[in-house]
């Protein structure tokens, strides 16, 4: 009975977090883009436009969920749910605060990199089942993109795993109690961090790597034919995905909920501990999300061959050499 109750509470929390994150992130994106584009952004619905996404959701709910003729009905309608379930599964091993973690599995990092590759299945399904040439092109692009960028994302995660010696997320965070890896690990960790940010931007199909939905080329790419709530599910899944990859980045390189500690400065560390751990976690995550949004509203889009060149000619060799360097650092104990 207690187990059942636990399930219900966890499920409700997950769905609630989903909804709130979706609303907050969409609003944040619109505000960030507006300020960078010397605009005001949404400012009519609610105080300073805070309820704009709620109004958008209502609009999307009231729209017709169209299934185009000639589409594979079952797969077409399945795809948004696959996208949603894939991202929901990723929430399980993420610690939102000290001791606030749904599932402290000992292979947490491996689990995340395995499940996050489910996203490509939903995109391929959506693209193929839509019976639309734009969607198909978008899906194929996305397939090539996500499969290749997972390599360097995985390698930069391995860099931290090598330093920590554990795949468990709570162990990784605990290992940063005397300083975050980004400060302890010298240049190789910085390289790993930059590679990670680039790779996850590509993995989540964000500009400048948004070739799957490149609006000036493929109108909307894989979700061209989706409307109403089915489109909203894709949209939401994209934002939750961004949140999750940024949370992983924060955990690996910035110590997750771990406050800012310096070696053995006891007094300083104690002051830092007064700030709640959830604030640390969300602060770091939202900072990384902001950086990814910053990319989107500054850079032009890459072409598909340049995208693959970047991965196979630059990111992958660099991160391979980098893993070697980090192993050396870890073995010789050169990190702080």
């Amino acid at each position: 009975m207690a187990l059942f109750l636990e399930f219900v509470i966890a499920g409700l929390l997950c769905i609630g977090l989903f909804a709130i994150l979706g609303l907050v992130l969409v609003l944040m994106e619109r505000k960030v883009s507006a300020y960078m584009q010397i605009r005001l952004g949404p400012n009519r619905v609610g105080p300073k436009g805070a309820l704009q996404t709620l109004a958008d959701t209502l609009k999307l709910l009231s729209k017709e969920g169209l299934t185009p003729r000639g589409a594979d009905r079952f797969l077409f309608n399945l795809a948004p749910f696959v996208a949603m379930i894939g991202t929901m599964l990723l929430l399980a091993p993420i610690p939102f605060a000290k001791g606030f973690q749904l599932w402290d599995i000992n292979i947490g990092v491996l689990y995340i990199s395995a499940v996050s590759s489910l996203a490509v299945i939903s995109i391929l399904l959506a693209g193929w089942a839509s019976n639309n040439k734009y969607s198909l092109l978008g899906a194929m692009r996305s397939g090539a993109q996500i499969v290749s960028y997972e390599l360097s994302a995985g390698l930069s995660i391995i860099a931290i795993v090598v330093l920590t010696g554990s795949l468990s997320i709570s162990d990784i965070i605990a290992s940063q109690a005397d300083g975050w890896w980004i400060f302890k690990g010298h240049l190789p960790v910085w390289i790993a961090f930059v590679t990670f940010i680039i790779a996850v931007t590509a993995e989540t199909n964000r500009a400048p790597f948004d070739l799957a939905e490149a609006e000036s080329e493929l109108t909307a790419g894989f979700h061209t034919e989706y409307s109403g709530m089915k489109f909203a599910l894709f949209f939401l899944a994209e934002y939750i995905n961004i949140f999750i990859v940024c949370a992983i980045g924060a955990i690996l390189f910035f110590g997750g909920w771990m406050p800012f500690h310096i070696g053995n400065w006891e007094g300083f560390n104690r002051i830092m501990d007064y700030i709640p751990s959830s604030v640390w976690f969300f602060g770091k995550t939202f900072f990384l999300i902001f950086v990814i949004m910053w990319f989107r509203w500054t850079f032009p889009r890459l072409r598909i061959d340049q995208l693959l060149n970047l991965e196979w000619k630059y990111l992958l060799p660099i991160s391979m050499v980098n893993v070697l360097l980090i192993t050396l650092v870890a073995i010789l104990g050169w990190h702080f």
């Binding site: 883009s33 960078m36 010397i38 000036s216 509203w297 889009r301």
Partner: peptide, 16 residues
């Protein structure tokens, strides 16, 4: 042109 190659921000700056 910047918008065509995927950067949306320059479009708004151009309008200024």
């Amino acid at each position: 042109l910047a918008m065509d190659v995927g950067a949306i921000t320059p479009f708004f700056h151009a309008f200024r």
